[in-house]
């Protein structure tokens, strides 16, 4: 955050530093009109920047805020905003670092699942703004000769995100975004969550056992045979028919290639 002092009449670096640090003095050239004080006046800018960015995080992570309550969320977001201000003017790109920040945030330690819920919410917004591309047509796979299917590889759709959680990230996300009343949730049940956007609507899917390993392998660029192996290794309940059905149903992939093509 420390920049060399600049020569310009607008000391933007000094202004920025004072905006993001409420303990700092206001910039020396900033004043009130006709000899008036400018403490409260400069604080308007501090407030606008801080509050608008906290509000942006609240808009991206509504389930996280419902879990923590607004007081803790805003305290946590305020610290995050100061440590990680946006580096793009596109606010819908903000907050990719927020889940990792939550993971190490002292006051959220009793909610160890919180970071993964935040990852699902961040993936939701990425999918919401992703390019309008048709997902892979199942017929493209039907055209591949059976002996080439094992080696088939898939390009993920730009909307696709996978969160593999040791906690019940799907149930917690679903309950806190979609349900008025939340029953008791066993958070210790591991869940893998797939975020896709097959049309205009973002779809968040809680994956059956073994499918997280299967999708992770495909997204990493492994071939279909290896991905199926990974799924079967991860769970004895893994069903390849269901898994390939899931690839099409979720629209997680854009295109397929084989070693021959």
């Amino acid at each position: 955050m420390q920049s060399a002092p600049e020569k310009s009449d607008l000391n933007a670096a000094g202004f920025r530093a004072a905006i993001l640090d409420p303990v700092r003095e206001k910039p020396a050239t900033v004043e009130g009109p006709r000899g008036k004080q400018a403490v409260k006046r400069f604080n308007v800018y501090r407030n606008n920047v801080t509050v608008s960015l906290i509000n942006a995080l609240a808009d991206i992570f509504p389930a996280v805020m419902r879990i923590t309550g607004e007081t803790l969320f805003r305290d946590m977001a305020r610290e995050f905003v100061r440590a990680h201000p946006p580096v793009s003017p596109l606010l819908f790109l903000y907050g990719h670092d927020f889940p990792a920040f939550i993971e190490h945030f002292e006051h959220a330690r009793r909610m160890p699942y919180l970071a993964d819920v935040a990852r699902v919410e961040r993936a939701w917004l990425t999918a919401y703004h992703a390019a309008d591309l048709e997902p892979l047509d199942p017929q493209a796979l039907a055209k591949i000769a059976p002996e080439d299917l094992e080696g088939a590889m898939f390009k993920p759709h730009p909307a696709t995100g996978l969160i593999r959680s040791p906690y019940a990230a799907f149930d917690i996300f679903d309950a806190n975004r979609n349900r008025e009343t939340i029953g008791r949730i066993d958070v210790t049940r591991p869940q893998d969550v797939l975020v896709t956007r097959p049309g205009m609507d973002v779809t968040v899917t809680g994956l059956p056992q073994g499918h997280g390993a299967f999708f992770a392998s495909l997204i990493a660029g492994d071939c279909l045979g290896d991905a199926a192996e990974a799924g079967a290794r991860a769970s004895s309940a893994f069903d390849i028919n269901e898994a390939i059905g899931g690839m099409f149903a979720t629209g997680a992939f854009l295109s397929v290639t084989t070693e021959q093509t």
């Binding site: 009449d9 607008l10 670096a13 993001l20 800018y45 920047v49 960015l53 946006p86 003017p89």
Partner: peptide
């Protein structure tokens, strides 16, 4: 202005009115 270096502050921040800022 709202961006300095890479940091975006999401507010319409003021500037002094001088020959230099006019040129910018």
């Amino acid at each position: 202005w709202s961006t300095h270096d890479e940091v975006f502050m999401n507010d319409l921040l003021p500037l002094p009115y001088t020959e230099e800022t006019l040129n910018h």
